[in-house]
Design a protein around this nucleic acid. Structure first.
Lengths: 351, 351
DNA sequence: ATTAGCACTCAAAGTAGTTGAGTGCTAATA
DNA sequence: TATTAGCACTCAACTACTTTGAGTGCTAAT
């Protein structure tokens, strides 16, 4: 049997209505609200076909139809129309993009927050590719003779700092010299390219600053660890509670617990880097080993000053895919490298 | 009527059992499990008295008794026995205290996490008193000739940084000079004592570095803003979902939404600085304007290198107060100033 | 090919009836 | 006089049964 035009129209009606109401959709409803040129009986016949083809399901024999995972799939891939973001929505997203464009880590945090609030689902973001981000500078800023702030800056604009207290005095000049030297030797290397030999040679050269050098090395490895164990940001978990699919606590707990488990989330999101920075939609079934039956996940990759990552929206399978996709695309597009005086795509569109 | 010893025993039984089971407690249960030397009938009479006195309530006429807010109050103030923390519990808390003792902001984050996981309720922490924390140093660390990391360090060990990009080149020497000068002039001042005049005089003196000085001033005011608008940390919200009082979604949503609203939380927690760093227990009724009827809040103040704050546990009124109080007291005690070589109270106890 | 009509299905909502944990009161007991 | 056994009473929670209505599939008419 072929998915002809009429069948498509009816499938679209079922999915759209179900997305809106969360109730099984009957033939009458469709005839009244969507496909007014056909009678319920005809629609019933078509729906029976669609069910046979695997696009629809019936919760029980006298209920309306509900989209199956396959149904959502073709809806998302072939039927769904592009959602046009409202002005308010674009403004809210742009505000964030403009505000804090320098610091990678903060940027993602803000981005997650907007996406959660614009889509009304939950957001998850991880920064991968980070690993490859190269060291730009190591700075030692003396606070007092025994206290230093260590700073590591990478090429993507991530800044990590640590306040340390030393037992021995260190002259500010020495600190400056050391940081210059370390920056010189280590700059351009990716964080995990820094070898023990390099470190040791610095250690030998600055044997008088042994304690400080030790602290720096400790900090560097700490930062490597931190950056490698990708940062996972979650926002908008509570949003999900307003959907009827989570009105029973067990379901709600299930998903909120997943959102609380950064480890698991990271696995779920970061494995399946799909094509370019197109959005990728995972529906229903198990996603990367994490089983969240009735959830969908819309993922989008972003890039920013050489670092990249994935930001995703988690919600019920009955998610407003069109809106979510548009929002994510707009945001990720707007997050492309912001070089000095650079113009992002969204800016251009506005003109 | 007087709250004699026998009544106290029975009240204790009711509260303890209700805390454990979340079910109304009947006279038989008490006679079997707690007050074995009295018959159910006698206990019934006493319970009727306790109800008349306002310490107990009946959900309906043929149910057992449940503690009233007043009942919890006297339980907490006069009846409850101190809970002795298990070794595991103390170890878990100490690990955190020792690990990241230098940086104030990170410390509180970790502390919240442990408390949530040790108590199995939700934790909320704010850092107040921060406002009074004094500026220790302003550092400018050049990354390249056009990029600088600005760093502000306060006396309590808070470090804030920001990566900025300038239009004009700045010589590293100038940056060093400027940061020395600014540290010299501003160090020791609390963040909101920094006056416009001081700022302007620096601006005049370093007119050639106008852009950089401008950026720094912007950053300083940003940091003041950030520190004044207290940082609110929340953890363990999902923990609450396992309690039957939140098995209906509306209730769950209500409390999780409060936990999501940092503004509201901050008001709820930070207003009622009670005596010293003793714990303070708010039961049931409205707390500082936020109405969360069936919740209790156990608060404890901490101090750390001159900054202070409040950490609190939120849970159902039927909370294991004794355990929560002990955990909070232990933790806040352990968080006292960690000066070089200093010994905290908990360390001493161990010996 | 479409549709009106009708019998059929089944979850959800409503209606009793039953059960059992718990109470309060009274009269017997230590 | 304080305690307790005994008993009638209450009421949420559970079960079993009925009703309702939205929705279906099939058939015969258009």
């Amino acid at each position: 049997m072929e998915l002809n035009d009429r069948k498509k129209r009816i499938l679209q009606a079922v999915v759209s209505d179900y997305i809106e109401t969360a109730e099984p959709v009957g033939s009458r409803t469709i005839a009244r609200k969507y496909v007014t040129d056909l009678s319920p009986a005809t629609i019933r016949n078509e729906m029976a076909d669609l069910e046979e083809m695997g696009y629809l399901e019936q919760p029980h024999s006298s209920a309306g139809r509900v989209p199956s995972v396959m149904g959502y799939r073709v809806f998302v891939d072939n039927i769904m129309e592009k959602y046009k973001l409202s002005v308010m929505e674009t403004i809210r997203m742009q505000e964030v993009m403009n505000e804090q464009a320098q610091q990678f880590d903060k940027l993602i945090e803000k981005a997650s927050r907007v996406i959660a609030s614009v889509t009304n689902y939950a957001t998850v973001a991880v920064s991968t590719g980070h690993k490859r981000s190269k060291l730009k500078a190591i700075q030692i800023a003396p606070v007092s003779s025994k206290e230093m702030v260590l700073i590591i800056v990478t090429f993507d604009g991530t800044v990590k700092n640590k306040l340390i207290r030393l037992k021995n005095d260190v002259e500010p000049e020495d600190a400056v010299r050391l940081s210059k030297e370390m920056t010189g030797r280590l700059s351009g290397l990716s964080l995990n390219e820094i070898s023990l030999e390099t470190i040791n040679s610095i250690k030998n050269e600055f044997y008088s600053l042994e304690e400080l050098v030790g602290a720096i090395i400790g900090f560097v490895s700490e930062v490597i660890g931190e950056i490698d164990s990708k940062q996972v940001i979650v926002d908008g978990g509570v949003n999900l509670l307003k959907f009827p699919e989570y009105s029973n606590i067990e379901k709600a707990k299930e998903i909120l617990e997943v959102l609380d488990n950064k480890e698991q989330l990271s696995n779920m999101i970061s494995l399946p880097m799909p094509t370019g920075n197109k959005v990728n939609i995972l529906i229903g079934d198990e996603k990367n080993g994490v089983k969240l039956k009735d959830c969908s996940l819309v993922l989008c990759n972003y890039e920013f000053n050489g670092s990249s990552g994935t930001i995703g929206v988690i919600g019920p399978t009955r998610m407003d895919y069109a809106r979510v996709v548009s929002a994510l695309e707009y945001l990720c597009e707007g997050m492309r490298p912001q070089l000095e005086g650079g113009v992002t795509k969204n800016d251009q569109e506005k003109k």
